[in-house]
Structures are given as structure tokens and as C-alpha cells.
């Protein structure tokens, strides 16, 4: 990989222009003239006019937050969710530890063990949301589309423990059955049409 484009710090003039700022007056007389012109040319009144106009237009942009909420995009990255498999309802997480490894704020940890079905079982999973920067790497790296981002951004709590627990993130089984689990279209999701770009492995069955 070439670093040349990073080394070229000559950003050029395209798209940049000097803001029209007059020179700052040096002499007392110059300053007086500036004050006089600014006061008498009516610039001050332009400001007054603008705000007064807005007041009478009464074009209010306030969203009254707890009562009204703005819609968020489906790719929004708020508190993580743990998905289940649609068919069997089991947790998708296989405990591979990739999210733990890739996490740049080092806030994911998991404990795994060998369970009685000879599978890798995640016994504990924790995300320190106090440290999480919601970059979405964990969702992107997850090979099972198990950890994704949800839309829950209201995290205020009196206790850290309330921030997130594995059980809170996991889709409840009844919600899954009710068909409420949706695939996350953001980081890590399968790109539409990606099947076409995959070479097929021959099978002997």
C-alpha cells in the first residue's frame, strides 16, 4: 500500500475561499470610524430585524423530547442487541471472541466454557457501556450476525449494572416467536446480492 496520498499535504485551493473580513483598524481614528459606520449603517438593526422577524413568524423547531421523538435510522448505532436464530431460537453468539478482540475501547469481555453438548458456551458476556464508543466494529466483525446495534439510546441510570446485561440485550424468546426480531441492516449485515460474488464450494452429497 502506498502512503503517497497521505503524505501529500498540499490540499490546494479548490473549494476554499477567504472570508471577506476587513482589516482590523490600527489607529484610534480608524476604530472610531469602524464603530461609527457599524452603528450608523444599520448593521445592528439588521440583527434586531432578523430576530424580530423570526419571533413573529413563529416557525418553531423544538421537538418536545420525552413526549415527541424523532425517528432514528435503521442503521443507528445505539445499545447493542443480541439476536437469536430465527428457526431454533437459540442464541446466535458462539463465543468466538472476535468482538472482544476488535473492540477499540476494550469494553467487551466474555467467559466461555465447554458445555455438556460439546459446544462452546458463553457463560458470561459483558459490555461496559460507560466505555463503549458505539463504533459498530463488534457488529461488523461478528461472523454470526449475533451482536448488532439497536435503537435504544436512553441509557440514563443510577447504577452501572443497569446499563447493560447480556439478558437485556438478548431478544426475549417470546418476542422472537412473535416475529419481532428484525435483522440489522447496518455494519456487518449481509450486503444485498452478496450471494452472487461467493464461489460455490462443491458438495459430494
Amino acid at each position: 500500500m502506498s502512503f503517497e496520498k497521505f503524505k501529500d499535504r498540499n490540499v490546494g485551493e479548490d473549494g476554499y475561499y477567504m472570508v471577506d473580513i476587513e482589516d482590523y483598524p490600527e489607529t484610534g481614528w480608524g476604530k472610531f470610524k469602524q464603530v461609527a459606520s457599524r452603528s450608523l449603517k444599520g448593521e445592528l438593526f439588521v440583527g434586531l430585524w432578523v430576530v424580530l422577524r423570526e419571533m413573529f413568524k413563529f416557525d418553531i423547531h423544538t421537538v418536545q423530547y420525552p413526549k415527541e421523538k424523532l425517528p432514528i435510522g435503521p442503521r443507528y448505532r445505539a445499545v447493542h442487541k443480541m439476536l437469536r436464530l430465527f428457526e431454533s431460537g437459540t442464541e446466535r453468539c458462539i463465543g468466538c471472541g472476535l468482538c472482544e478482540k476488535i473492540c477499540i475501547s476494550d469494553c467487551i469481555r466474555m467467559d466461555t466454557k465447554y458445555d455438556e453438548n460439546s459446544r462452546k458456551e458463553v457463560t458470561e458476556y459483558s459490555i461496559n457501556l460507560g466505555r463503549c464508543i458505539f463504533c459498530g466494529y463488534c457488529a461488523e466483525v461478528c461472523p454470526e450476525l449475533a451482536i448488532v446495534h439497536g435503537g435504544r439510546y436512553e441509557n440514563a441510570s443510577e447504577q452501572r449494572a443497569h446499563f447493560v446485561e447480556f439478558e437485556d440485550m438478548l431478544t426475549p424468546i417470546d418476542a422472537l416467536k412473535a416475529g419481532q426480531q428484525e435483522e440489522f441492516p447496518g455494519f456487518g449485515a449481509i450486503i444485498p446480492g452478496s450471494d452472487k460474488s461467493v464461489k460455490k464450494t462443491p458438495l459430494a452429497y
Binding site: 463465543g95 468466538c96 471472541g97 472482544e100 478482540k101 466461555t112 466454557k113 465447554y114 462452546k120 458456551e121
Partner: peptide, 9 residues
């Protein structure tokens, strides 16, 4: 040792 940790940890 099985399934307790990943090599890179």
C-alpha cells in the same frame, strides 16, 4: 483448556 480462551487473549 478447551473453549476457555482464544490464543490472542
Amino acid at each position: 483448556y478447551i473453549y476457555t480462551s482464544n490464543a490472542w487473549e
